[in-house]
Design a protein around this nucleic acid. Structure first.
Lengths: 198, 198
DNA sequence: TTGTGTATATTCACTGGTTAGTATACATAG
DNA sequence: CTATGTATACTAACCAGTGAATATACACAA
């Protein structure tokens, strides 16, 4: 039945997402992804050039939804900048307590592919993190903050640190600790001189 | 020639360390480790029960030297607590600029084995990080800091975050940014009330 | 000094299983 | 009847772990 086509590609990416995220890139075979998507490996290779290509597609598909979620948490929190940023960490802690949580797919992939710096999947992950960093920087720039880029990077360090630490210790409370640190850093930056910005 | 014995085990661990750290656990075969150590796979299996056992030994061997290095950097820096902690990040940035640097072996292993929470290697990694956290907590407790454990954890989040971020972006300057954040957090904690401690 | 047994250490060759990727054929839609 | 899409069956390589044999060092006896 050669019906689907476009939906097929999407179905493969969904299967890849589920398997690669929960078990890692190298532990999951192309056959397993195909089986989960309900088709054969040969069909998968019709839609994707190689496994690396599939890995890249898996991460590319996580980019937008992930960022959207962070923006939503930020927007929904009522209060100033410190409160809004801390809300991201609080929501993340809630996610991290679910049993299927396995950290950040981008970071785990970059750890698995650490010896292939130019790999497409790593470039996608780096771009994802840069997007988040830039969004934060813009949010900080709208307030009286002296060095919005530096502060955005510090928050990102706490965020990615909490992914790593919580994955290792399986203790989501570190995420709330990271949130407090983020609040402290933002409050300190707000208290300093700082030039304006619209 | 059945000469060596004890040195042999050490030689295998050195080979494993070099290969596992630079290429990852799953990308390196037991044969490759044996070849690098200058012996056959069968001999390796005489000294280690399984590959998992070898992985655990590889991480266990990194534990002490790693902690010693951090303590050395901390002790050598002249100044107060904020300066000493920031020195760790500065030295780490220097290491991270070497081309063979591949992040933190413990964190990368935990990312690779994310779906095996009970794996010996993960327990060793978690214990390693806890040791560092506790050492920092003790150092903070000697000063007038209200919640030394919380502060130690915040520094660790920055540290592990910088491993992850620098590995992804290949930009070691994030480590210096993390060091500045650490300094800010410590200075803030020192400025607050806080009870004493000997 | 010389012979002998035993625990230690090492090798060769193999098994059983997995895996990324492909050659070829077939089915359906328009 | 041709593009597109799917399946069967295969290749060639890799890989964790093992069976069986062997070599050495050393303790101890003769």
């Amino acid at each position: 039945m050669p019906r689907p086509s476009e939906p097929t590609r999407e179905r493969i990416i969904q299967a890849a997402n589920s398997l690669f995220y929960s078990e890692g890139i190298r532990r999951v075979s192309v056959d397993e992804v195909a089986a989960k998507a309900g088709l054969t490996k040969r069909t998968l290779y019709y839609h994707f050039k190689s496994k690396d290509d599939l890995v890249a597609a898996y991460l590319a598909a996580r980019d937008q939804p992930n960022l959207a979620l962070f923006r939503k948490w930020f927007a929904e929190a009522e209060g100033g900048l410190p409160v809004k940023v801390e809300a991201i960490f609080k929501n993340l802690a809630r996610s991290a307590r679910h049993p299927k949580w396995k950290g950040c797919g981008f970071l785990r992939t970059s750890a698995e592919l650490a010896n292939m710096p130019g790999h497409p999947a790593i470039r996608i992950g780096a771009a994802h993190k840069k997007k988040f960093e830039d969004w934060l920087r813009a949010a900080f720039a709208e307030q009286r903050i002296a060095d919005p880029l530096k502060l955005a990077r510090q928050i990102l360090l706490l965020l990615d640190g909490s992914f790593a630490v919580v994955l290792l210790h399986r203790d989501a409370s570190y995420m709330e600790t990271a949130g407090e640190a983020a609040r402290t850093l933002i409050e300190t930056a707000l208290a300093k001189p700082g030039r304006k910005r619209g």
